[in-house]
């Protein structure tokens, strides 16, 4: 069935809540309103207010209570309405979600899936356009998944909802309704921690995730027309990260471009570059290139297009790296 990403996530939540009675969706406006992006539409009517909880307006309260729920036998799916507002809850992620299993030597765990509508490019208000995956990637004990298509969104969410650890589930807002694709109606899972080779190629490896996988596709098509064969890897998960797939591809191509929508400094691309240096230095034919947002605050809508990597910048990066 053809679905956009909103429909795919909604379908998945519905299916999973039917399968597992301990799953509860919670957050601001997720119930009666069905979420500000309609991702949780219809769930309130079907599962009732006990499992689709319209919470008070407090990110810290949402995640704090979700920790208690998760530890005592539920699988909460808290939503942070916009990722730019997650800071108020950040301490619960770091101090509890990430370490509950470790500090109790496995006697308590925190299986929750935190839904994080992220990314910009939709001309939103201030604080509504962030992509903050790196601030979790620095924390041991959190898993991070970042789908780039409706198919991935459904499969990764189903996997996250059967995972025994806290999963930060990023939803690239700009892809919510960007396109539809064939998505199986029935339940399926996509393993967390495995990258996906979008297309094989020989000259340059391009690594991306989330919305940037979608944006990169056009640039790759252009590059191929210009005679550069690109191997496109969509990470799907940042933690755990599929270092092996990255390494294998870089060994093959000797060249690598990383595209991400977060700022450059200490972005996840920096970690990927470091790993390539550690493992595959001798395979490199060119410096690894990063195409990222600039090290500035996300601009207001009028100027935001300067901020995000686009087809033009990505194409330029691929060609430069190929020709180096």
């Amino acid at each position: 069935m053809k679905m956009n990403m909103v429909e795919a996530i909604n379908r998945c939540l519905n299916q999973e809540m039917e399968r597992d009675k301990t799953i509860a969706v919670m957050g601001e406006d997720v119930g009666v309103d069905g979420g500000v992006f309609r991702v949780t539409d219809g769930l309130y009517a079907k599962y009732g207010r006990e499992r689709v909880i319209d919470t008070p307006l407090s990110e810290s309260g949402i995640i704090g209570t979700a920790v208690g729920m998760a530890a005592l036998g539920m699988r909460p799916v808290p939503e942070i309405q916009f990722q730019g507002f997650e800071y108020n809850a950040y301490h619960h992620f770091v101090q509890h979600c990430a370490r509950l299993r470790n500090r109790t030597r496995g006697s308590f765990t925190c299986p929750m899936v935190v839904r994080l509508p992220a990314t910009g490019g939709i001309k939103a208000l201030e604080h509504h356009s962030e992509s903050l995956e790196t601030i979790y990637a620095h924390i041991a004990g959190l898993k991070i998944v970042y789908p780039s298509s409706p198919y991935e969104a459904k499969g990764l969410l189903a996997a996250a909802l059967s995972d025994e650890d806290t999963v930060m589930y990023f939803e690239p807002k700009r892809l919510y309704r960007a396109f539809k694709e064939e998505v199986p109606e029935e339940r399926y899972t996509i393993p967390i921690g495995k990258a996906h080779t979008v297309k094989e190629g020989n000259d340059v490896t391009l690594i991306s995730w989330g919305a940037m996988t979608y944006i990169s596709k056009d640039a790759i098509a252009e590059a191929e027309k210009a005679g550069v064969s690109v191997e496109h890897i969509d990470l799907r998960s940042l933690a755990p990260c599929d270092w092996e797939s990255i390494s294998n591809s870089v060994k093959k191509t000797g060249r690598c471009v990383i595209v991400h929508e977060a700022v450059k400094t200490m972005g996840f691309g920096a970690e990927i570059m470091a790993r390539i240096m550690e493992k595959d230095f001798l395979s490199l034919e060119a410096p690894v290139k990063r195409i990222t947002a600039w090290d500035i605050t996300v601009p207001y809508p009028k100027l935001e297009d300067y901020y995000f990597p686009d087809k033009k910048r990505i194409l330029k990066g691929i060609i430069e790296t190929a020709k180096f």
Partner: peptide, 13 residues
């Protein structure tokens, strides 16, 4: 907050 969430889970169960 953990206790409030914990109490919620216990009740639901």
């Amino acid at each position: 907050a953990h206790a409030v969430g914990g109490a919620y889970a216990l009740k639901l169960r």
